[in-house]
């Protein structure tokens, strides 16, 4: 299989699009007709062939364009990638994990040769051919975290474990759903989750922290999270709210199908071997309502989920202002028929 990479943009003219194959493999996050905040955790990698769960780090048709978009964001704001000094080792751990996984899972795209610490990395889609010395930062153009995450889709948080808590001490964050690395760096698990409504009260975070601390190497996990975004924009950061916030107001009954996107985060959790840090990659998938509705099960279900959702969550997920327009649009796909269990299309 040779992968075709889209020429597309995630800002300005927004030429981002999903091919029919990309739609069918979209990680639709609802396994039933209603939504409750929960810690829905599964082992990762592992899933149907071709699904975004099959491999450790999914590479899809948006890879090259997403990396270009990251480059633009970083050029405007280099603070989107930060690493406190004690996290450099964790950066190397992550670099190794990603290079080894990608070379194993996509041999036609990536190649890694290792002779002790002398490494040779080839990234064909991005045209990179690099020899460097593992664990020697002077042999890379930038730190290991930045180097590898300029070549991997999704945001990355590296968490340091101490005092029975997890601290967000390094990260690459250019496609976040409304959170800020600059604001959150150095915070612990509870502090940076503080804005999620209801979850704190439900004790969800205590459980989630306990779970994360228990993640061991050689066994990784994933969960899906979701939100809604107007336009296929990756960089919906608080810093740039003035750029994307007003776009919420451009939704009309005519354009809602094309402009309103369901934004799904595939979050994975990895214990890194040398640093004992946790890696928390957050991969973002976008799909507009029109495309979602091409899968009848998803069209029906999304209508029901968004109709019955707790108003606080609608607010938190950022679509309360457009909820009525969205529901009017989606109702045409909901004939009341039953939906099959699970997230995959029929």
């Amino acid at each position: 299989m040779t992968m075709q990479f889209n020429e597309e943009s995630f800002r300005g003219d927004y030429t981002f699009r999903n091919s029919p194959a990309a739609i069918r493999r979209f990680p639709f996050p609802f396994d039933r007709d209603e939504y409750m905040y929960s810690v829905n955790i599964e082992q990762h990698p592992g899933g149907p062939e071709g699904s975004p769960f099959e491999f450790a780090f999914d590479v899809d048709e948006h890879y090259v364009a997403e990396m270009k978009d990251r480059e633009i964001t970083l050029a405007e704001d280099p603070m989107r990638c930060q690493s406190l000094p004690h996290m450099e080792l964790a950066g190397w751990d992550l670099l190794e994990l990603i290079m080894v996984s990608k070379a194993r899972d996509y041999p036609e795209l990536f190649k890694l040769s290792r002779d002790g610490n002398a490494w040779h990395w080839i990234n064909k889609p991005l045209g990179i051919d690099k020899k460097f010395t593992f664990l020697d930062p002077t042999t890379l153009p930038c730190g290991p975290l930045e180097y590898i995450t300029r070549q991997a889709q999704g945001d990355f948080a590296l968490l340091h474990e101490r005092e029975g808590n997890l601290w967000l001490d390094a990260g690459m964050v250019t496609s976040q759903a409304d959170w800020s690395l600059d604001f959150d760096v150095g915070m612990n698990f509870f502090e940076w989750h503080a804005p999620v409504p209801k979850a704190r009260k439900m004790g969800v975070f205590d459980k989630a922290l306990k779970f994360l601390l228990a993640v061991t190497q050689e066994k990784s996990y994933r969960r899906l999270n979701w939100t809604m975004t107007v336009n296929p924009r990756l960089d919906t950061s608080p810093e740039n709210y003035h750029k994307w916030g007003p776009e919420k107001r451009t939704i009309t009954p005519e354009n809602v199908g094309a402009k309103q996107f369901l934004r799904v985060e595939l979050q994975t959790f990895w214990r890194l071997p040398r640093s004992n840090a946790l890696a928390f990659p957050i991969r973002c998938y976008l799909c507009n309502l029109e495309d979602i509705a091409t899968q009848p099960k998803w069209g029906r279900r999304l209508h029901r989920v968004l109709r019955d959702i707790d108003p606080d969550l609608a607010e938190y997920k950022g679509f309360a202002v457009n909820q009525k327009v969205i529901l009017d649009y989606l109702s045409q796909f909901d004939d009341g028929a039953e939906t099959s269990p699970g997230i995959f299309p029929d």
Partner: peptide, 11 residues
């Protein structure tokens, strides 16, 4: 597989 509850604080 190895696990660690006694790691060095690299700070």
């Amino acid at each position: 597989a190895p696990a660690n509850h006694f790691q060095l604080d690299l700070r």
